[in-house]
Nucleic acid binder design. Structure first.
Lengths: 252, 252
DNA sequence: CGTGTTTTTGACTTCAGTCAATTAAAGTGG
DNA sequence: CCACTTTAATTGACTGAAGTCAAAAACACG
């Protein structure tokens, strides 16, 4: 197991963004033993059934998490970006229930679960930060359930784009900000529970209506607040901050 | 804060079902300081925005967790049964993002977060069990995402019924088993992302096709395996066991 | 026994899926 | 740098599953 410089800094940034960490806490996190590997787009980071003895941390790039139905269709359950924990450190380790696949070139760190748990016991602040991170993840999944269940095509895509913005700009979106879409339209479809054809048409409509502007895989958001409203997007799960006024769509 | 006999035993049963706990661990869990309250159907257990200084454990009955969209529609994000943790113990406590409402008469225990976290630090097995419980919860949410996204009306209802069976019979379902439906058709609709009318028609079809038999709010499952197949239901998230052969629908 | 909720049904509409074909982009190798 | 292949995006015509509106029937409860 190679110890690599400050490669775990995305983890420190993530946890430190949730809970205040002392210098010693941060140093202890960076000092965790780990190995880093690079994964190419389309390759798997985690396969269903894998028993992970390490906690995988996404250092850079995007991945998606998916599951295959009994009928052979794919369903994307979430996307992950820099700083995300790709599997929850449980003891004993449990077999993975879904696939995690690289969307872009990706760097992943593997930290032995025992070390993560030992550190979180030794340093309460880190333990708390991990709990909070996990709780935020739960929050994101709930937002996805909500996104699938009670929104039309435009809203679903809008919500997903909002999430991408949050993952690309941790500080939050703004008018005119741009994101590179790491998903093909087929992947967008599997993530929103629609068909490729309908995704394509919906993108066209969103563009006509001025919610997005696009060229290639680059999406520009002219009016961030308007997009959030369309997608009924609540940023709190992604920011970690839970300030209501930022979240609630204007009711008027 | 009243200390009430062995009222926390559902918590012990839940955590002990995930991870082997020693007698001392179990005793320590039962000895956690807590108060118990009874909530009537329709009343809220947790309200959006509540800042919980306690960890709420469902001792008996069923609740659902929902969120209101900006347009005023309700979306049910999950149902909870005996032994479920209704909020994740984070420090500092975060405001709740959704409502938890009683479906039946319900008993809820409130345990101060500090005590939960202290115990999980003092007793690693309990800490591990809590992590695992949380991870199982994540797993259930993912199953819901999948349920919303890529299943038709029959499949969605079937999946929800499978979950209800698992929650009513922790040992697992069997042919001829019966569950009392704690949800009205309107609630079923909000939980599956459909309309009341369509839920009603789908129930009728499921009955005609022999997947369920019903009178009042009681649902009988003549063929458990067949229902699981229809709903592409993977029991692992609910059982805690992750044995694949039980999960995978027969492919033939 | 009346009142309010839940369930059921019918007629009609619409959003999204299906099938199939075309165009555009991105590689690949000579 | 250009033919050739492959993958991704786009479009059209048609179908179908689920939503909408509205009303009746059944049930639950004080």
């Amino acid at each position: 197991m190679r110890i690599v410089g400050h490669s775990l800094s995305p983890l420190v940034a993530r946890l430190g963004g949730r809970i205040a960490l002392s210098k010693e806490d941060k140093a202890a996190l960076l000092a965790l033993p780990h190995s880093v590997r690079t994964v190419q787009p389309g390759d798997y980071v985690i396969r269903e059934g894998d028993i992970a003895h390490s906690c995988h941390v996404l250092l850079s790039g995007f991945t998606h998490r998916h599951r295959m139905s009994a009928y052979g269709t794919r369903h994307i359950l979430g996307i992950h970006g820099e700083g995300d924990l790709l599997n929850l450190p449980t003891l004993p380790p449990l077999p993975a229930e879904d696939f995690v696949q690289a969307l872009t070139v990706v760097q992943v760190a593997a930290v032995p679960i025992e070390d993560v748990l030992a550190l979180s016991r030794a340093r309460p602040a880190i333990g708390n930060a991990l709990w909070t991170e996990m709780s935020a993840e739960v929050s994101v999944f709930r937002a996805w359930i909500s996104n699938m269940g009670r929104r039309d095509a435009r809203g679903r895509i809008a919500h997903l784009f909002c999430e991408l913005v949050m993952r690309s700009y941790p500080a939050g979106g703004s008018d005119g900000c741009t994101v590179t879409l790491p998903l093909s339209q087929a992947e967008l479809a599997d993530a929103t529970g629609m068909t490729t054809v309908h995704v394509n048409r919906t993108l066209k409509i969103l563009e006509q209506e001025g919610f997005i502007r696009r060229q290639r895989r680059r999406i520009m958001i002219p009016d961030w607040r308007r997009l959030k409203e369309l997608g009924d997007f609540r940023a709190s799960a992604w920011t970690g901050r839970r300030d209501r006024d930022e979240d609630v769509a204007q009711a008027d």
